[in-house]
Design a protein around this nucleic acid. Structure first.
Lengths: 137, 137
DNA sequence: TTATAATACTACCTATGAGTAGTATATATG
DNA sequence: CATATATACTACTCATAGGTAGTATTATAA
C-alpha cells in the first residue's frame, strides 16, 4: 500500500526539476541531488522522455528539460505512466467483479477513500508543489 | 499503490469467516469458496494462527476458527500483521527524513489522505462488515 | 576531425512476493 | 491400532521490480 520506488523517483525528479523548469538537467546532477542510483535514473529518464514529460538532448552539453509545462502535468499523469493508476482503482479485496452494483463488503468504505486519493493526484499539478519544502534526500 | 495479494487474501478469508464466526472452517472449504490457491492459503492460515486471530485444530475434523472475537479485530491489525502498516505511513516521495518539522513538497497533502486511510482501517472491525455484500470470488 | 561528455540500449544480476510439491505430524473414529 | 482426513513444515519454482555493467550512439567544441 504505497507507491512503487520508481514512482517515488519519478515524482522526486520531476518535482525537483519543476522548481526551475526552464533549466537543462544532466543525469549526473540529478543523481547527485536526489540519490537515485545512476543507471536506474537514466533508464527512468528515458521512459519519462518517451512519455512526453521531458525531452532528452544527447551529446556533449546534453541533458533533460521539460517539453510539457509543469502546469500541464498532473501527479496522476506521472504515476499513471510509471506504474499504472488502474492498480489503485481495483477492489480492495481483489474481487474482479466488485462494483457499485455488485459491491464487496468493503466497497463503499474503500470507494470513498479511493476517490479522495484520486482527487489529490488528479488535481495537483507539478507547478502546485511547495518548492520551499525539502526536494532532495 | 494497493494492498499485497496476501493482504487481500487475509481480508477475504477473515471477513468470510466472520459472517458465521463460531464455525470451524477447513482449508478445503475456504479454498473452494474464495478461490485462493490451496497451498498458499494453508500457509497464510498458519501465519494468521501465529498472529493470534484464529487457531488451528489439526487432525481429522480439524480446521480453523476464531480465537479472537471479530469485534476485537481491526482491519488495521490484519493488514499490519500480513504486510506491515509502516509501509503505508512513510513519505510519498520516499524521503527518509520527511516529517512535519521537515516536510517534503507533498507532505501535508499526503498526510491528510494517509490519516483518512489509517482511520478507515483503524476504526473498522471485522464485525462491522456488511455481510450481505459479496464475500466470495 | 578528433576528443570529450552527454544519453540510449542490451543484457544481465538480485531480492522478493506469489505459488507449488512432497513429506511429516496430529487426531477422531471404526 | 489402523486408517482417513485434517494441518505444518521444508524446500523448491516462477514472475517481476529494482539495480548494474558494458557498449553504442550522439553532438559540441577545440
Amino acid at each position: 500500500m504505497k507507491l512503487s520506488k520508481t514512482s517515488e523517483y519519478a515524482l522526486r525528479i520531476l518535482i525537483y526539476m519543476a522548481k526551475v523548469p526552464d533549466q537543462l538537467y544532466t543525469a549526473k546532477q540529478l543523481v547527485k541531488e536526489l540519490k537515485v542510483s545512476d543507471k536506474y535514473l537514466r533508464r527512468l529518464m528515458t521512459d519519462l522522455s518517451k512519455s512526453g514529460f521531458i525531452r532528452s538532448i544527447q551529446g556533449r552539453d546534453g541533458g533533460y528539460t521539460f517539453i510539457k509545462s509543469p502546469e500541464d502535468i498532473l501527479l496522476y499523469d506521472i504515476i499513471d505512466s510509471v506504474e499504472g493508476m488502474e492498480k489503485m482503482n481495483g477492489c480492495l479485496l481483489g474481487f474482479e467483479k466488485c462494483s457499485c452494483t455488485n459491491p464487496c463488503a468493503m466497497h463503499y468504505l474503500w470507494v470513498d477513500i479511493r476517490t479522495d486519493l484520486n482527487k489529490v493526484f488528479r488535481e495537483t499539478r507539478l507547478s502546485d508543489m511547495d518548492f520551499n519544502k525539502i526536494l532532495r534526500y
